[in-house]
Lab assay of single mutants.
Amino acid sequence: NQASVVANQLIPINTALTLAMMRSEVVTPVGIPAEDIPRLVSMQVNRAVPLGTTLMPDMVKGYA
């Protein structure tokens, strides 16, 4: 099963992502692949992401 990127904390809108904000977890539906975590660092979210939410490509500016 593919691990996805999950929010490790509440991430406010327009926040630049850091490693501490993300974790890898096997979830359904599948979100951004966990191997993309290094690429996500310093990218901004375009909405508030609650703790435990799977990051989807449309939630991260410049990812999709």
Rank of each mutant, 00 (worst) to 15 (best):
N1D: 15
N1Q: 15
N1V: 15
N1H: 06
Q2D: 15
Q2M: 12
Q2P: 15
Q2L: 12
A3G: 13
A3H: 10
A3V: 09
A3Y: 09
A3F: 09
A3Q: 05
A3R: 04
S4F: 03
S4P: 01
S4L: 01
V5R: 00
V5N: 01
V5M: 02
V5A: 14
V5S: 03
V5F: 01
V5E: 00
V5P: 01
V5W: 00
V6M: 08
V6N: 01
V6C: 03
V6R: 04
A7L: 03
A7I: 06
A7G: 03
N8A: 12
N8F: 09
N8Y: 07
N8K: 05
Q9G: 04
Q9S: 13
Q9P: 00
Q9D: 12
Q9K: 08
L10N: 14
L10G: 14
L10M: 14
L10V: 11
L10K: 05
I11R: 00
I11T: 02
I11H: 00
I11N: 01
I11P: 00
I11L: 13
P12C: 13
P12S: 11
P12H: 11
P12L: 05
I13D: 13
I13S: 15
I13K: 08
I13P: 07
N14Q: 11
N14I: 03
N14R: 07
N14K: 04
N14G: 07
N14D: 14
N14P: 00
T15C: 03
T15W: 11
T15S: 08
T15P: 01
T15G: 05
A16V: 15
A16F: 09
A16C: 12
A16I: 13
A16R: 06
L17D: 02
L17P: 03
L17T: 00
L17A: 00
L17I: 11
T18C: 03
T18H: 08
T18G: 06
T18K: 06
T18E: 09
L19V: 13
L19K: 12
L19W: 11
A20E: 15
A20Y: 15
A20H: 13
A20M: 08
M21F: 09
M21W: 03
M21I: 05
M21Q: 07
M22Y: 01
M22A: 01
M22T: 03
R23K: 04
R23H: 07
R23T: 13
R23A: 09
R23G: 10
S24P: 13
S24V: 09
S24N: 07
S24Q: 09
E25D: 15
E25V: 04
E25A: 05
E25M: 04
E25H: 04
E25Q: 06
E25L: 04
V26D: 15
V26K: 03
V26L: 06
V26Q: 08
V26E: 15
V27C: 04
V27T: 12
V27N: 04
V27E: 03
V27Q: 05
V27G: 03
T28D: 15
T28P: 02
P29V: 07
P29R: 03
P29K: 05
P29L: 06
P29W: 03
P29E: 14
V30M: 11
V30C: 03
V30Q: 09
V30D: 14
V30G: 06
V30N: 15
V30K: 03
G31A: 04
G31F: 01
I32E: 00
I32K: 00
I32H: 01
I32V: 14
I32T: 02
P33N: 12
A34H: 13
A34N: 05
A34I: 10
A34C: 05
A34G: 07
A34R: 03
E35A: 12
E35T: 13
E35P: 07
E35M: 04
E35R: 03
E35L: 08
E35W: 06
E35I: 06
E35C: 15
D36C: 07
D36G: 04
D36Q: 08
D36W: 05
I37W: 03
I37K: 04
I37P: 01
P38W: 09
P38D: 15
R39E: 04
R39H: 14
R39A: 08
R39L: 08
R39C: 06
L40C: 04
L40N: 00
V41K: 12
V41S: 07
V41T: 11
V41P: 03
V41H: 07
S42P: 03
S42A: 12
S42N: 06
S42D: 11
M43P: 01
M43S: 13
M43H: 11
M43V: 04
M43A: 06
M43K: 10
Q44C: 08
Q44F: 09
Q44M: 11
Q44I: 10
Q44A: 12
Q44D: 08
Q44R: 08
V45G: 01
V45N: 03
V45S: 12
V45H: 00
V45D: 02
N46S: 12
N46Y: 06
N46Q: 15
N46P: 02
N46T: 13
N46L: 10
R47W: 05
R47H: 13
R47V: 15
R47A: 13
R47S: 12
R47D: 10
R47I: 15
A48D: 12
A48S: 15
A48V: 09
A48E: 15
V49K: 01
V49G: 01
V49E: 01
V49W: 02
P50E: 10
L51C: 05
L51E: 11
L51P: 11
G52S: 11
G52W: 07
G52T: 03
G52I: 01
G52Y: 05
G52A: 11
T53C: 04
T53I: 08
T53P: 01
T54H: 03
T54N: 02
T54D: 00
T54R: 03
T54K: 05
L55Y: 00
L55D: 01
L55I: 15
L55F: 10
L55W: 00
L55G: 01
M56P: 02
M56L: 15
M56D: 07
M56I: 06
P57F: 06
P57T: 12
P57H: 08
P57A: 12
P57G: 13
D58M: 14
D58R: 05
D58H: 06
D58V: 08
M59K: 02
M59T: 09
M59G: 03
M59R: 03
M59I: 07
M59Q: 09
M59D: 09
M59H: 13
V60Y: 00
K61C: 15
K61E: 11
K61V: 12
K61Q: 07
K61H: 12
K61F: 07
K61D: 06
G62H: 11
G62W: 08
G62I: 03
G62P: 08
G62F: 14
G62C: 10
Y63H: 04
Y63N: 08
Y63I: 06
Y63D: 04
Y63P: 06
A64R: 14
A64M: 09
A64T: 15
